[in-house]
Amino acid sequence: MLAEFLQFLFSGLTVGATYALAALGFTLIYNASNVINFAQGEFIMLGGMLSVFFTMAGLPMPVALALAILVPAIVGVIVEKLAIEPVKGAETVTLIIITIGASLVIRGLIQVWLGKGTFALPAFSGEEPIQILGATLMPQSLWVFGVTAVVVAVLWYFFNRTLSGKAMLATSFNRLAAELVGINTSWVLFMSFAMSAALGALGGILIAPITMTSYDVGIMLGLKGFVAAVVGGLGNGLGAVIGGLLVGILEAMGAGYISSAYKDAIPFVLILFILFFMPRGLFGGKSTDRV
């Protein structure tokens, strides 16, 4: 009983950490530009696929992984410069279609370049499972938890203790006011795309040894990251992390106890349920329109 529960919890937390990183990516871009970046999932895919490609090309693991974060970050910046900045202030649907267009281009390019195969990245420190109260935990899951925790801590420090972070936060509250006090909001936009692409890629790398990766894993991972961001309340960083973990855990529990066939539906049932009762997510607060 307990062993089974723990087993589901471990796998839920592991995949939930990836959702949390993706959700943080959604949150960063949303705060900087009010855009929901539907290409976020492709950064996760890029992280996984590129790390596989670079290690297979013979690069030492640390170099390969660093490149697999750096390249998606550059891709993120290109998307921002080419497709988001020129259409500032466009309608929501227009922006949604642009980012979906970007995701198709990224996915399509990887498909042409690396094919439709499924790949696995070797685990960072072996495949020897750890036994905890009858449940097994893969060492890679520890990597996932550890790195995610470090990233969250670093982000917290960045946004609360550094001038650059505070500038980004200020822009999300009021762009015009931020510009008036001399914050370069176009730099903020640049940074948020680079950072969220890097975060997505990192999540993709960490999870690649566990779930395998292919050119088309980005769609579902991205959508679930979006769910996680909305669960927490769009724009709320802590909410995104909690949302990610919650979505991961419920998905694993649902798959384990209810139906594994409907595993992918669980996050969406969850989000509909939450939105029915809390129209701005768990931590989204209340909005009052000024008239």
Binding site: A90, I97, V105, I106, R107, G108
Partner: peptide
């Protein structure tokens, strides 16, 4: 290259 071109055309239209 269909996916790439299709995506690029969508972006082009919207931009």
């Amino acid at each position: 290259w269909e996916t790439v071109v299709f995506g690029a055309i969508l972006m082009g239209f919207m931009i």
